[in-house]
Every structure is written in C-alpha cells, then in structure tokens.
Nucleic acid binder design. Structure first.
Length: 848
DNA sequence: AGCACGCCGACT
DNA sequence: GTCGGCGTGCTC
C-alpha cells in the first residue's frame, strides 16, 4: 500500500507551473550565481582572516553543475530586510550602554560555531594574549550561557569588531596549536552547511575525523630544557644527581623527557622533579604520536610495477586531462570509458603528471572497490600513497591524516570521505565510478561527494575528473550543457570486443525451465563454461535464503511488526529477519494467520541460489559473496583471491560482485533477475537497472577468450534492459532523459526531501502537514515555482518502530528548493514530548 | 543541549 | 518559609 502510494505520488501529477506572475525566481533567491563576480583564478592559499569569508574574495566556479548553489556571502545572517527584532532592540535599550562607550571600536572578534545546539555562530572578543595565535579552523573553548565548563567551538572567522555596543565575552582558550583545516576548507564547511542545511559545527565533525579530534594514538609528553639564565656557579651548588641531569641536558641541547634523563644519568625521576620545582628545568608539553604507530608508514621504494602502454584512445584522454591540470582553472571532466577501457591507468598517468609538478591528488572510489588490487595498483606507482579504508583503527587514521596535512602524501585513495583529505597542494580530484550511490552519505550531513568535490575543485581552481562506464544522468547532462568536458573511451584495451548479451524471457515457460532460478539457456551456458575451464559469475540482486515467507493457503506474508517489511528467511538457524531494523524471530512452522502448516518460502536469495547451483553443477566449486558471508574483515579479499587463483569456478553474489572486478578468465556472467531493481518507487529505478546490468556484464570478456552475458528478465522489452543488452549508453540516456523531462526530475531539476518521523502516527502526520503549510507559504512568499509533493508514507513507512512521512520538493533551480525549505523551517519547532524528528535531504539518491 | 528562572504545590 | 517539580527562554 505504501509502495503503491508513493509510486503514484512520483509518477503522476505532471509538473504544471502554478502561474507565471512571479517569474523572477532566480533573482529573488539570495544566492544566485549572478550575485557573484566570476573570478576564474584560485584564491590565495592563505587569505587574510578578515577577508577569508568575504564574498568578493570567493572564487566562483566558472563551470558548474546545472542549478548550482554557490558559496553564500554570509550564510547565517537572515537575508530579510532589517528584522522587527532589531528595531525593537533599538527602542528599548539605551544603546550603546554607557559603560561600554570607553571600549575601543576596533576589537578583534572571532566567529564561533558549535557542533551541538545552540549552533551559533556567535561572536567572541579575542583577548590580546590570543591575538597572534587564533586562526580560523581552530577549536576554542568559550563561555556559553550559564554553563559551568567552557564549551568547544570552531572558529570560522576572525574579524575586526565594530559592534562595541553588544556585550561580548572573551574566547577562553585555544584547543589547537595549528588550525585543523585551512581557510579553503573552512569555506567548504560553510558552503556545505548552507547547501545541505546542516549547522556548520556538525560539518566540522564530519570533515575532521573523530580520531583526529580526539588525538587518537597520541600522548602528552613533557620535555625538559634547562633554564636560560643558568650560571656555572648555580649548577655546581646543586646535589650531584641534579647537577648531572642539568649538565647532560645542556651538553645535548635537546629537550628530553624525564624518563630518558633518568636512564641517561642513572637516577630516579625525583631529582628531575626537584629541578622542575626550582625552575632550573623548564617543562614543555607536547602532543605526539605513539612511537609504534610510526611503523605503519608504508613507503614503496622497491618494485615499481610495469608502466602499461597507453592505447591511442587512452593517450588522447590523458592529454586532455593534463591540459586541464596545466590550465590552472577549475573545470569538470567526464571520462566516459566502457568497462575494460583502462580508466584506472589513465587516472594513474594523470596523477603522475600532477605529482611531477609537486602537486597531489585525491582518488575516490566506491566503498566496495577499495580492494587490495586497487590499492596495490596505486601503491606500486607512487612513493607515498595513503589509503583510507573503513577497517582502519582510530590511531592509524589519525596518523595518516597528519601525514596528509604535512604534505607527505602524493595520492589519497578512499571512499567519499576522502573528499575532505587535507592535502596542502591538491592538484586533481578523481571520482571513479562516479555514478555509484555510495558517494551519497545517508546520515547527516547528507552530502554527495561529487557535489562537494566539485565545490572544492572549483574553489581551488583544479580539475575534477569523473569517471564511469555508465555516467549518472547528472554527469551526462552536465557534459551536454557544457558544464563538463566529455572525454570518451568507447573501446576496450587490446581491442577486445564487448561481450555478447543474451536476454532470456522468463515469461516463457520453456525458457524458464523447471521451478529453479537458473533458466535453461543459463544452465547450458554454465555447463559449457565449466567444461571450457572458464569461470562464471551469477548476480542476484537480493540477499537471504528467501525474500518472503508466504502462506500458499491464505496468502499471508510474515512481516516485521516494527517496519511493515516482509521478513527474510535465513536458513542458518531457521531465522527470519527484517533487513531494515534487524528484528529477528524463529521461522514460524505454520502460518500465523490461518495455521496452515505448508508455509512456503517464496522469492529467491543467494543462499537458495547457492543450493540450486550446487545441485545442478555438482562438479563446480562455488562461492557465495553477499553482505552475510562477507561480514568478517578480509573475507571479501580472501574469496576474491581464491577466485583469481582459479580455486573457485563460480561466484554467486549481490551488487558487490558487479563492481570493478577484473578477472580475465570469467567467460560467463548471468543476471538472475534483471527486474529486481526496476520496480521500485524511485525515478532512478531504470538508471539503476541499466547501470547494474552494464557493470556486471563488464566483468566478462576481459581476457583473450571473450565472454558472454545472459540476462534473465520478465520484461526484456524494457528500454533500460534493451539498452544494457546492446551496450548502448547513448540510447539509454536519450530515452531516459525524455522521462526525466516529463516531470522535471533531476538532472533537469532539483529535488529535496523532508522526512518526518515519530512514534505516533497521527502526531507525526500532523507535523508533516504543518511543514507542508509552511513550505507552501514560503514558496508563495518567494514567488517561486516549487512543486511540493506529499506528505506521504515513504516506501518504508515504518522504521525502527517509528512512523515516517516524507515531503518532496522540486524545482528547476536548486537554490530555490533550498531557500524554500530554509525559510519554512527557520523557526519551526515541535512539541518535544511528541518526540518527532524531521530531517532535510538535499539531492536524495534514494527515496526509501 | 545545558542551565537558570519562575511559578506552583508539598513538606519541615 | 524552603525544597523541588517542570515549563519557558536564552545562549555572542
């Protein structure tokens, strides 16, 4: 019911502009592109504190994604005319108060934001003692309200204060010696906070890893140096041990710890304590890494792997990228290279070019392709690579972060969070598999690494290189509008052909063959492959033994009491669990509704497929790869290396086997059910299906022995499946763009989503309705053409025991959507006892 | 988010 | 009178 509802909501209601009486949508938006000077050059690496947030010094992307929102001048000031509040203040306060008249006007102020409420920004006076040291990007301790302890905040700006009439409190202390992010990153934080509608303080917490904030793997160590004005006479009067300590320290000239001194002199630490009391030894506290962590540094001096010869096509791509790097301008490049066209080698060569000019680069890859193979490829070609993976311990992470910040790293490879890597001389950002949905974070701040990378690259005046065999509609559209430069690599390396794709129509009983998931043609193909000593991959876009537990007698489906989602039956231990909230019960032996005892496990999961495959191909060595079997760290890697070594004949799995694997002996890829992603209430369902089928098909035909693909489907005539079967990306985008245009869905327009959740259904819905009303009045006030959908229950209507509703907004301009929400929710509050939360998702990638 | 203030009723 | 419950409002 919920599925149907939101499908209707998304697919019906063509977007009809209400009226055109207020056509000046863009100019009424406060942060439209036209507001800013077009400055193509990069901002100075170190801009002075006073001007670092100044809009005139902000570099504006000269080529940006469509409907882009730019760095706002002052994101936190209300853009309204001087508010009624301000007028009231003037009326009722003696202004300025007489006792503050004496204070000079030109005080230095720090603008501070907080990661917890209240988020600020608030202005604090900078006492003279901190004047020299306080820089934007540092953490400070400040008094706040009536709190007893000082509160941690982030300094986002240092500025000259003119408002002497306001009561201002002092910054109490600095919590960092050097800023944790440079001026450019502070600006990125401010932009993200504005664009994604998240307090800047929370963005800092995302930008700076918690391990860095906590100083993981570091220790406070006290070093001693001798006092400056020590005379020989003074020293000779000291007791013997103390004398020895001081003389040693003077002769070595190095600050030394108490423990080291004690060992060197052969005494206890007591003489040192006494010297400290007498102020003959001056202590100096430093924070440093544990020595054992330094060992983690991986330097590659040894074997530098063979540099591959580039094909003509690769060479041409590389030259265009190098030209962009050398131009010193911010621009976006879309490298559209079919699977197996050798994109990685192009990235490496382009980065070698950047590194040769003392620059550095970020390479972002989907979480799942951060495999040892990917790592190895980069590590063998560069002196200093930092690989940021999820298995890293906090102290390792901190260690690498410091290395990166010190400029000791040439290439950073990581998932979406790598976009924040604090490289001091960044020259290129690469986003591999640009279309992958893992680049969108699904918790606050819900940023998209592509968007953030774009903002960062444009602000620095460096190229952003997007690579994919199946570019997202967004990237493709950008290339068609001149916002991105398209580089095509239509051929595979060594002129290998694209694999043949055969569609199997599952509606035909004869094709389907029996009750299993493996059709007759697929069965035959597998047998042939095994006979030829080749390897096969079977993709099933689901996990679990069976998707649903359905009673054949009454039709009852066993569902989760908290989420309303069908439970998935898992064979190990006869469990049934909810994939959304982890609710688990023993599999019921009979139907809970009608007590019929022949309950059926419908649907299909990888476990069941594994059983079927083992029964049908008893001589094949089969391994399963899904998020259930890959829970333990390293298991992923182990199965893949077994597959590479030829110890496994057939690999079964979910999405994760579709991406980036490069095994030359894979002669067959089978897609068990290509429709599984197609019937989702999401306007990107067709795009997902096309990408999935194309990507998995690309896993074969990578060796000299060719390869073939068999795609099983109930709807072989669907354009996405047709296009995928012919490797025809252009045909797909052409047709899909028509669909998007019908309703102005991205990339033609911009979408945002507001999710409202709470424990009581009616209260939650009432809040959703209240938000709708506010959105409508904000829209009318702005005179903007924003289409507002909902509130409706999302496809997952209930999650973790909470009821959910969502609202969708769309318009041609991202800035308009953002501003409508910002105004509607600016002072919106709910009754705390209803426990209702609402969250904003800008540019959502899934609508669950 | 804290923390204080202020307004209540219930207790020493 | 004074203690403590919680509703309300502010924090540069």
């Amino acid at each position: 019911m919920t599925m149907l509802d939101s499908q209707l909501m998304l697919d019906s209601q063509p977007f009809v502009p209400e009226d055109r009486k207020n056509a000046s949508v863009v100019s009424s938006a406060p942060f439209s592109q036209s507001t800013f000077p077009q400055t193509p050059s990069a901002p100075p690496a170190e801009s002075s504190p006073a001007e670092f947030l100044n809009p005139t010094s902000v570099t504006v992307p000269s080529d940006s994604f469509p409907s882009d929102e730019l760095f706002p001048p002052e994101p936190f000031k209300s853009q309204e005319e001087p508010s009624a509040d301000a007028a009231q203040t003037e009326l009722f306060e003696t202004n300025p108060p007489p006792w503050e008249l004496a204070v000079e006007d030109d005080v230095l102020l720090a603008s501070i934001v907080f990661s917890k409420s209240p988020h600020g920004p608030y202005d604090y006076r900078i006492p003279d003692s901190l004047r020299e040291d306080l820089k934007p990007g540092m953490r400070v301790g400040v008094p706040l309200g009536h709190r007893k302890k000082s509160t941690l905040g982030w300094c986002v700006a240092v500025k000259e204060g003119s408002a002497a009439h306001r009561k201002l409190r002092d910054v109490a202390e600095l919590l960092d010696d050097t800023p944790l992010c440079d001026a450019a990153l502070v600006r990125l934080v401010m932009w993200m906070g504005h664009y994604y509608q998240v307090p800047a303080g929370q963005v800092f917490d995302t930008l700076i890893p918690s391990s860095v904030r906590a100083g993981a793997g570091t220790r406070q160590t006290t070093y001693f140096t001798p006092a400056k004005d020590l005379t020989d006479e003074q020293i000779s009067k000291l007791p013997a041990k103390q004398q020895a300590v001081v003389r040693l320290l003077i002769s070595s000239g190095k600050p030394t710890t108490a423990a080291e001194l004690a060992v060197a002199v052969g005494c206890t630490e007591d003489p040192i304590r006494r010297l400290r009391k007498k102020e003959i030894l001056i202590p100096e506290v430093r924070r440093e890494m544990h020595s054992n962590i330094r060992i983690l540094a991986q330097h590659n001096d040894g074997e530098r792997k063979q540099k591959l010869e580039l094909t003509e096509q690769q060479q041409a791509a590389l030259e265009r990228i190098n030209t962009a790097v050398d131009s010193g301008r911010g621009r976006t490049l879309l490298l559209h290279g079919v699977t197996g066209s050798g994109k990685t080698e192009v990235y490496i060569k382009a980065i070698e070019h950047v590194v040769s000019q003392a620059g550095s680069a970020i390479v972002m890859v989907p979480e799942i392709s951060l495999t040892p193979q990917t790592r190895g490829r980069f590590e063998s070609r560069f002196d200093s690579v930092a690989v940021l993976h999820s298995q890293m311990s906090p102290s390792e992470r901190h260690y690498h972060w410091q290395r990166i910040r010190r400029g000791e790293v040439q290439v950073v490879i990581g998932p979406r969070s790598a976009v924040f890597a604090p490289l001091p001389n960044l020259g290129l950002i690469v986003l591999d598999e640009e279309h992958d949905t893992s680049f969108k974070q699904d918790s606050q701040p819900r940023y998209h690494a592509r968007k953030v990378a774009h903002a960062r690259a444009m602000a620095l005046g460096i190229p952003l290189l997007l690579g994919s065999a199946t570019p997202s509609m967004e990237a493709w559209h950008a290339s068609q509008c001149g916002h991105a430069e398209l580089i095509s690599m239509p051929n595979r390396v060594a002129n290998r052909p694209m694999p043949d794709v055969q569609l199997v129509d599952l509606r035909i009983r004869d094709e389907r063959g029996g009750s299993g998931a493996i059709s007759r043609p697929l069965h035959a193909a597998v047998l042939e492959t095994i006979r030829d000593k080749g390897q096969a991959i079977l993709l099933l876009n689901r996990r679990g033994f069976a998707t649903t537990i359905q009673c054949p007698s009454c039709g009852h489906v066993v569902a989760c009491p908290d989420c309303d989602m069908p439970l998935t039956h898992h064979r190990d231990g006869g469990k049934a669990m909810c994939h959304y909230c982890d609710y688990t019960i023993g599999t019921p032996p009979w139907c809970p509704a009608c007590r019929f005892d022949g309950i059926r496990y419908g649907g299909l999961g990888t476990q069941k497929l594994e059983m079927e495959a083992k029964a049908k191909f008893p001589n094949a060595r089969i391994a399963r790869m899904d998020s259930d079997t890959m829970k333990r760290p390293g298991s992923h890697q182990r199965v893949l290396s077994e597959f590479r070594n030829g110890d496994i004949d057939m690999l079964l799995g979910t999405q994760m086997i579709a991406k980036g694997l490069d095994f030359p002996n894979v002669l067959l890829v089978g897609v068990i059910n290509a429709d599984s992603a197609l019937h989702f209430p999401d306007f990107r369902a067709a795009e997902r299906t096309f990408q999935l089928v194309t990507q998995v098909a690309g896993r074969t035909g990578r060796g000299d022995r060719g390869g073939r693909v068999i795609v099983q489907t109930f709807t072989p005539e669907h354009p996405a499946i047709q296009a995928a079967s012919r490797h025809d990306y252009h045909k797909f985008v052409e047709e899909e763009m028509v669909n998007r245009r019908k309703f102005n869905y991205p990339p033609l327009g911009s979408v945002a989503r507001i999710i409202i959740r709470g424990p009581l259904e009616d209260k939650t819905e009432a809040v959703a309705d209240g938000i709708l009303a506010r959105l409508e009045s904000a829209r009318d006030l702005l005179g903007s053409e924003v289409r507002i959908l909902g509130p409706a229950p999302p496809p997952i209507g209930r999650l973790r025991g909470k009821y959910r509703f969502h609202l969708l907004l769309q318009a041609t301009e991202a800035a308009v959507v953002g501003e409508t929400i910002r105004r509607a929710l600016a002072d919106f509050k709910t009754d705390p006892k209803d426990e209702i939360e609402f969250l904003v998702d800008i540019d959502p990638v899934n609508l669950l």
